[in-house]
Design a protein around this nucleic acid. Structure first.
Lengths: 339, 339
DNA sequence: TTTAAAAGTGGAATCGTTTACAATAAGAAA
DNA sequence: TTTCTTATTGTAAACGATTCCACTTTTAAA
């Protein structure tokens, strides 16, 4: 069997409790015994058992990460690896490890999450997305389990700690950017309408239009499930309008890619025939032809800050709920033309 | 505090051991008591504590997932979400959960892995990549800890269970595909040379060339770190040769995207000026302009099978090492022209 | 010196399960 | 009846840590 704290204690001629204190580097143990115990640990190749530790401790030093349904196309978005990088960086800095929940159906994921919290597998949870009426967020809230969400909670945003961009503002900015460059017919292509980020960006777009006194047309608002077919239909609709848009605000780089592919197919060129600005600025935005003008939302920071908040919440359950706003910035490339 | 097995026992008027047996659905407990105990669990809202369970059990019902360095650009490849989907599907089917290791430096990841195995946090590990001389694989092998690799281990492939495509064959196939279509000058653009998959694909390419009696030229072999700059240099080199290639075998869809972006920039069109075939067939391949002809390597299956093997290994540590080969298939789109 | 406080360790209970080993009751066979 | 199975449940010891509460020694103060 594995070597335990008792074996170490025996070899070092101390009590198990002493060994435990050495592990925790408790100042009440003399340097001399510490040295002796450490040598014993070294000699035996001792490693603490985390399960035992968690049990005694009532803390796991691990964080749960809840991704969207893996059946969902969103799952493939490079947003997630990048946000994960932010999460794991901060987690690692604080010696926390990550536990992942996945599932293909919403209910499956909810079960997994329930398992995490009831089974005491994690000390806190990061929700990587925010949907309207999300059962998982509801559950976490009811249980009063420490969690943070990336994106803005639809209901009661004040009651749950979250980190988000100012998506309303960002969308307004890019729409104005387009308007300033002479575009008067700009359309909006959004993703799943049940994602809060979609509705935020949509309202930013609308606001910009209104402020510029441009007519707002329902036909210019289109939603794409991010599936190829859906995207293509949407593009066709838009292009076959009597007054087709001269510019597109697209809620996601990947969607923009799909749209450009279709545009290319029907012989329209970006940015000469139509301009595009999208969001997220994932690596791919740079690889597109032409490279995409995109809003950098600092995905890494979203993840990093989410964990920062979560750790605070774990530390002090009573700490008040926060909202962290990660700044965005427009990265101009070649998909926008000045009219 | 949380409700424990003892509380349930008290309410149901049985011993804790009985409750435990009811949880395990042990046939030696009468249906009557089972019912009674279950009611008690229901009433109290009981949920087993996984840490305690793992401790007593010496098994965690969780699998470790080792990703490549998050600092690495590869990390962003849609390959990973998809392989994760396969992994989590199979894991879920068997009521296993996932534990994730990440880190930005190789050593950091190794530490994390050591933590997983020594700390008894997981019952087995899936390695999502195979590199030449990988310290993590070495460690796992020395420890004789159950693990499987996605991709082919460079050293001692017979001694470690792995699931892979026949990458040699796949590369040979696509190269021949190009040759059959009249291409005589076909170049190879590979990724990091320390990934085994790269060298396998490279040798398949070479073999096809040799068998077709085409001259093999060093200048036609190029490796790209997948970073934009590197990719661009490579493209420039290739295109400025006296006899530039008419077709490219590119080891990864994403790389192909980057290359096409550069090609577009310097005014070369795919497939009219140059044909491209790439690997993996991630969703993006379809979104490219033009849509990419790509080898579908069935990423989902890679993940699914890796877990299947791993579970066998966990079940029976003595089981012999396996190699599972997941079939590939060429998906033709519009990036190849017949000369 | 005597006494009080501080420093350093050890003992034993505890965290919430599982499981080997009894123990009891009920039914079948003799 | 008595005895032997068999079915069902209970007891108590792990699993491998942490931590509260003593208990010695020292050291400092009186």
């Amino acid at each position: 069997m594995a070597v335990t704290i008792k074996d170490v204690a025996k070899l070092a001629n101390v009590a198990p409790s002493t060994v435990s204190r050495v592990i925790a580097n408790n100042p009440r143990i003399s340097e001399k015994t510490k040295r002796r115990v450490r040598e014993a640990m070294e000699e035996l190749g001792y490693h603490p058992n985390y399960n035992a530790r968690s049990l005694a401790n009532r803390s796991t030093q691990t964080l749960g990460v809840v991704m969207p349904s893996s059946a969902d196309k969103v799952f493939q978005n490079p947003f997630f690896p990048e946000v994960l990088r932010g999460i794991s960086t901060k987690a690692h800095e604080n010696e926390f490890t990550l536990y992942m929940s996945t599932g293909s159906k919403e209910e499956e994921i909810l079960d997994a999450v329930k398992g995490m919290v009831h089974g005491r597998r994690v000390d806190g949870i990061v929700l990587l997305y925010s949907r309207i009426d999300d059962s998982i967020m509801k559950f976490l809230k009811e249980e009063q389990f420490p969690f943070t969400v990336i994106g803005k909670p639809f209901k009661y945003p004040d009651e749950v700690t979250h980190v988000d961009n100012d998506n309303f503002r960002a969308a307004k900015d890019v729409t104005e950017h387009l308007i300033e460059r002479g575009h008067e017919r700009v359309a909006f292509v959004g993703g799943q309408l049940d994602l809060v980020v979609t509705v935020d960006r949509l309202s930013g777009y609308e606001k910009a239009l209104r402020e510029a006194n441009l007519t707002y047309r329902d036909e210019y608002i289109v939603h794409v499930e991010f599936l190829k077919e859906g995207g293509h239909e949407a593009v066709m609709e838009l292009c076959s309008l009597e007054e087709p848009p001269t510019a597109l605000v697209v809620a996601d780089d990947l969607m923009a890619l799909g749209i450009m592919s279709k545009l290319d197919e029907i012989g329209l060129s970006v940015p000469d025939d139509i301009s595009i600005i999208s969001f997220n600025n994932v690596m791919l935005a740079e690889y597109a032809s032409p490279p995409l003008t995109s809003v950098d939302i600092n995905i890494f920071q979203l993840g990093y800050q989410a964990v920062t908040c979560l750790l605070e919440k774990i530390e002090d359950a009573e700490s008040s709920n926060k909202r962290v706003c990660v700044p965005h910035k427009l990265v101009e490339r070649w998909s926008v033309k000045t009219l």
